[in-house]
Design a binder for these strands. Structure first.
Lengths: 360, 360
DNA sequence: TATAAAAACGCAAACGATTGCGTGAATCTC
DNA sequence: GAGATTCACGCAATCGTTTGCGTTTTTATA
């Protein structure tokens, strides 16, 4: 009794009749109608009378009818699910993008299947393989840093599977792409350093061929050029961040190298999320004072930037929005009636957040 | 030619014949056999000769046959997918658990569908509803902080859907549960503070009824008791962390309150990931020196602990392992031939990492 | 050499939903 | 009131698999 009362005041799906999953057949039997009538009624077909529709609808709602995903998918050749391939889940920036993807996809009632490439090209292909075989309707991918060959992705696309690139873009495949204005972000970060009096600015980048890396490098170079500072190639170092250990080694080596230079850098601009935060941790650990010994600004979306030691100046990317837009682009491809041949590349603006790590 | 050479040296799935998805029917037609023969051959049935099996297998492999997930799922009444409900993706601790879940599930070739409750009980039910309707084979859930009623989950379970709780456990449902030894973690953290000379130890907890909160509170109390320190109720405050804004407000209020006390706390033990890191950020922002003014130790798995200001002492949970074990428990339930009635609760050990924030 | 047994394969139903088409009844038209 | 519409519904095929059972062919047994 108390239980019943409680449920009655509960403003949520009534689940008292959920003992067994109800199918069209069950409803048909119960209402003494045919399966097709039930189906059409639920799909609001003009072939069915209003009267019948009402009966069916109310029965269905009361018994929590929900179309079997498998059956529907089989029939329609669609699964209403999209595959998402990212480098790693354990990455705040990635998590924010996934959140964006999820928010848009959920609204459109698409399920998302997330897979991790762990920065390995081979692993990435394994993911794509699974997703393709798993029958996803489309793929959202932010390629692994080690990926050089996009032919597999192109093949999938040619096989009719819509693909959208996000965050890490590439020219090797023609499709919708959603990324950040990396050139501008890098440019702004570098200009910020220069305008704050830093002259020997090092740049720590990745060892990938992804455009994300070269765009940021170019932004850095352009800023130097525009401010009449000579680009010193020895201040450019790259790290392998395919795994944390390797990244740590490379970062340590890079910092040692920088500090052994005759003209040491007085600031470092780091190109990716992991590099930025790990670099700060390492500088602290190695006893260098930031920004006293060397200033630091980096691409990273961590919400802990202001809790870091010192508070870290960052270049922020609209991760959530990026995910949302990427998802919207993919779903538009999936639901397009005619094959899409005109693709667009969307660039979102980055934002420099100045904090203590770049204030002399 | 160059292209062909390249593909030949590529140690990955050959995708040249991927133009069209091949089905059993296609293979049957091509080999002049019946559909059922193909199916049985691929499933290594004793009814099929070795000779035929070889032919079928090789044809299937060459043409990249992969069973249609929808059809198979429909036929078997299983989808080989599991639903995972977490509070948020944007949470390093959660990400680590998801990573663990993913690693185990992938190995067992289960897909995972991740959904976010955003700490809302209502949203959580919506997730469960979608997952149930979506036909997942089982559910892994770490309940929202606001969840007080587990009847929906129990109903799902009674309807035959295996459920496993992880991280945040509850007594309101009888099933496998995988969590950390929160009592011990809190106890150890508190003892650590006491042994380092702190006497007025505040405890910042959450406002949930989840056992995770009371266990940590009890660990804190027990440590005080064992060390002959009187428990001061005014040093216990709780925060609503259903959303970042609310958390920020509550935290700010709590800190103000603490600092207005006649006998200020000289250390704070925070009970969750978000509270720990945001509390540190806030203390910094409000101008309090850690650990000079107040020491801080908290439950958090952030890999940035040593980059924080100051490096943050933490209670670490084996998040990855927790995810793995939870997934294994769920899959064992899913694949059990007979209904399981004996459930177990697995407690994993936590580990205190001492850093600068608790060193006088 | 009959006959029984085993081997190898095909037929057809089933999973749950959708949809074009056929059919009977009610309604309309002149 | 006979013929033409319209309405409301059911039949059956289909999506791709799986699987019990029936059928044919081959091999073994008496």
């Amino acid at each position: 009794m108390a239980d019943k009362l409680f449920n009655d005041t509960f403003d949520l799906p009534d689940i008292n009749h959920m003992n067994k999953i109800v199918t069209l057949k069950d409803i048909a039997k119960a209402l003494n109608l045919s399966i097709s009538t039930i189906s059409k009624a639920l799909n609001d077909s003009y072939e069915i009378s209003e009267d019948t529709k009402k009966k069916v609808l109310s029965y269905a709602k009361y018994h929590h009818y929900s179309p079997n995903r498998m059956a529907k998918g089989l029939k329609e050749g669609k699964s209403r699910s999209i595959g998402v391939v990212v480098c790693s889940l354990e990455n705040n920036f990635v998590a924010q993008m996934l959140d964006g993807i999820d928010s848009y996809s959920s609204n459109k009632s698409y399920q998302i299947i997330i897979m991790q490439s762990k920065e390995s090209a081979q692993q990435e292909i394994a993911c794509l393989d699974l997703l393709y075989a798993g029958g996803v309707d489309g793929i959202l991918i932010s390629p692994a840093s080690q990926t050089v060959d996009f032919s597999y992705l192109v093949t999938l696309q040619k096989a009719g599977l819509p693909v959208v690139l996000f965050d890490r873009l590439s020219d090797h495949i023609d499709t919708h792409k959603v990324g950040a204005d990396n050139f501008r972000g890098a440019y702004d970060a570098t200009v910020h350093l220069i305008d704050n009096g830093y002259k020997n600015i090092a740049h720590l980048n990745t060892n990938t061929i992804l455009s994300i890396a070269t765009e940021r490098l170019n932004g850095y170079k352009q800023a130097l050029y525009d401010r009449n500072i000579t680009y010193r190639p020895e201040l450019l170092r790259s790290c392998d961040y395919s795994n944390p250990k390797k990244l740590h080694q490379d970062l340590e080596a890079a910092i040692h190298y920088y500090m052994s230079l005759e003209v040491r850098p007085d600031a470092i601009f780091t190109a990716t999320d992991q590099i930025s935060t790990r670099c700060l941790a390492l500088l602290n650990k190695m006893g260098y004072h930031v920004p006293g010994d060397v200033a630091l600004i980096g691409f990273t979306n961590t919400d802990l930037a202001d809790a870091l030691n010192p508070a870290l100046s960052t270049v922020n990317q609209p991760a959530f929005e990026m995910g949302q837009i990427a998802a919207s682009k993919l779903i538009s491809l999936i639901e397009a009636k005619i094959p899409v041949t005109e693709f667009e590349t969307i660039m979102l603006e980055t934002k420099v957040n100045v904090r203590a790590s770049t204030q002399k």
